[in-house]
Design a protein around this nucleic acid. Structure first.
Lengths: 160, 160
DNA sequence: CTAAATTCAATTGTGCACAATTTAAAATGG
DNA sequence: CCATTTTAAATTGTGCACAATTGAATTTAG
């Protein structure tokens, strides 16, 4: 009987465990497919997807600390330090200790870092057209996702 | 003038580049926050999130190949081979070549792999309650995400 | 039947993510 | 003023992701 419920031919599936019914799996796989769609465009600029997100933040607010960058991206220094070092090596930004508080490291875009913004100008619209959804659905999805993210972030803060 | 548009104090932001307006970033960060919410529950079972997803597939269809598993999870052998080896070491599954086609490797759950399903029974409902969204919004979000994923997957197939 | 093409898994190498720890600097409290 | 605590970044170690390549088995075409 135990064997019976484990048989792959048995259609009596555990509804709650069906992979394709899990919201978490939709998020996980859609996020990766989205990144995959960015890849060919970002490759031309010699950027990875997390590096591109980092530039989005810096184009908004140049000269912020690693900490502040991490708060925007939900990433910690363990991820950001090596990523920023690679971007520094590529000549996109500089990392220097804050003179008034030596614990902090300030990230500043180089000329090259600034100019990449113009080379990236076509990317956002190119992606939205490839998503293949109506503006209405995309707007609703975005709003729902934003609220979900806020809830998930709060829930994780409560954990610690 | 060029300097002016790059000044962090200038509120004239490039609408299309604002991080918090990017659907891709919502997906990316929500997926990671969701995984973070699973972590304490999965830790009790000594599982990572991708390993849990792998078990979801195998609980549905035991005895499938690495290829088929990858098609369900949108992952390739480069990711799955080491992951499955770790799960084999933990005694959750076995990996054996298909006798009728030696190219294929068949993944079969062990007794321990099967029994983890009962230990995981509380996880799906625990997560849905922590998402903190109404069933209506969650259902809509799930449906929209599923359609988006399908489109993104198609778009990526066209790329190759 | 066999040479070429295809398929499948494994391997190699790079770049994230993230928990946990370490190091140094700054803030706080007695 | 100095010991304690807190904060910020870096470091260490593990486990994904994924592109690119390799190697072996199978399929296909001539």
């Amino acid at each position: 009987m135990q064997q019976f419920t484990q048989n792959k031919l048995t259609p009596a599936t555990d509804e709650q465990f069906v992979l394709d019914h899990q919201l978490c799996f939709m998020l996980y796989s859609a996020s990766r497919e989205m990144t995959k769609l960015y890849r060919p465009l970002l490759e031309k600029l010699d950027l990875t997807y997390p590096q591109y997100l980092t530039l989005l933040v810096l184009w908004e607010q140049n000269g912020i600390t690693v900490k502040e960058l991490g708060q925007r991206l939900y990433l910690d220094s363990g991820t950001l330090t090596p990523l920023l070092k690679r971007m520094e090596t590529q000549g996109l930004l500089s990392r220097q200790r804050d003179k008034t508080d030596e614990r902090k490291v300030i990230i500043t875009l180089t000329q090259r870092g600034h100019s990449l913004k113009e080379e990236a100008r076509c990317i956002p619209s190119a992606l939205y057209s490839q998503a293949g959804q109506s503006p209405e659905v995309l707007a609703r999805l975005f709003a729902d996702m934003k609220e979900l993210l806020a809830h998930l972030h709060q829930a994780n803060l409560r954990q610690n």
